[in-house]
Design a protein around this nucleic acid. Structure first.
Lengths: 205, 205
DNA sequence: GATCTAAACGGACTACGGTCCGGATAATAT
DNA sequence: ATATTATCCGGACCGTAGTCCGTTTAGATC
């Protein structure tokens, strides 16, 4: 269902039948194209499922069969950027990727995440609007685990899982966007504050 | 509009005309009663504005004129508990209220807030479902300022406002409820983790 | 008590996300 | 080519939050 995961799923890799009917594939491409157009024109919040269906020239049912929900559509639209981000912090060069000390990687992770949210913020927020299990989406679980891993690496003695949860909360797209857009806080100050936060949390260990 | 604030507003104290028409007052009471009934019967998520209007025997427009939105209704329903909570951490006995060191008050604040969320969780979540300005509601601003104040009192040298924002994020009702209800984490562990977190943040100053 | 007016009322209406199912069609077997 | 079938398609339909505006009424004035 969710096209955002550790490594992006191509149709047929895991879910469902190995082949996709040609009309289905054609409609998926049409829908993704139309969605990008609409977001360019009206912003992510201006994209409604009805307008998307109309623009793509398909029925509304088709939209939902393809993406499951509005949030699912947004996740699909994010999946490329998301996969790239994941690759950077898991396999890329230090300090974000492996090779640097845990604390430095944590600091870099926060900065990168803040930049990511500021770039894809509207989409990320729309993708999070799912009622429940917003925190159990594969990508969110992966960030959480990553933070937890780095905390353990730094010898965190308090419950690393809950500490990672607390730190994750700080990077919530909705909060970050709100701080920047409503309160006019500069992104660099957010990154700086994150640095202070994780440094204290780790040092206190 | 919002009935949740520092000290609860009684009709006529600030907003609008000093007196409320008798039919308006009668309908407000009817609506609040019906809302509590419905929540008892169906849970907060089972309360819809249509059913509420029907149960209270008023038109739907009346519901929205009175409370502005579903979230506004939920806030009104929470306002008593909220006012009591506010009174406790601002004027009550230590360690939650004034008289204890900042760090102890911070720790107590987290515990109290966690208990509060677990008790009124559904309502709190429903009250937060407002699209925007969820973080600028008077009650949220007050918690934020309170945390910021305590951080300053402890000599926080990094930006106290942003640190308070980060700590607030940790206490978000949706996250706390999710941790408890979905992942089965015991509330005591949440409080313990909060204690670790704020201790490190303050000590690192 | 009659009059007046600002406030409140009610419910039809819109926009939206999401569901459902009878009909169409692409792939496959014959 | 034809038949079969699993999959897909479309758009009518539903429940919900929120808006609008013509009508009613409480309460003040005379």
């Amino acid at each position: 269902m969710w096209d955002v995961s550790f490594i992006p799923l191509r149709p047929g890799s895991l879910s469902g039948p190995v082949t996709e009917r040609s009309d289905a594939a054609r409609n998926r491409e049409r829908l993704l194209g139309a969605a990008r157009e609409l977001i360019d024109e009206c912003g992510a919040d201006g994209l409604t499922m009805d307008r998307l269906a109309e623009r793509a020239g398909v029925g509304k049912g088709t939209v939902f069969r393809r993406f499951g929900s509005r949030a699912g559509l947004m996740m699909t639209l994010l999946s490329d950027a998301e996969a790239e981000f994941q690759a950077r912090f898991m396999f890329g060069p230090p300090p974000l990727g492996p090779g640097a000390p845990g604390l430095e990687r944590l600091i870099a992770f926060g900065s990168a995440r803040i930049a990511y949210v500021l770039e894809y913020g509207e989409l990320a927020r729309a993708a999070d609007e799912s009622a429940y299990n917003r925190f159990d989406v594969p990508a969110a679980v992966l960030w959480h685990r990553h933070i937890e891993l780095l905390l353990r690496e730094e010898g965190m003695d308090a419950d690393p899982r809950l500490m990672a949860m607390a730190l994750s909360a700080t990077l919530d797209p909705e909060r970050l966007l709100h701080a920047v857009r409503v309160h006019g806080i500069e992104p660099e100050r957010l990154a700086e504050s994150w640095r202070e936060l994780v440094t204290r949390v780790v040092r206190g260990a």
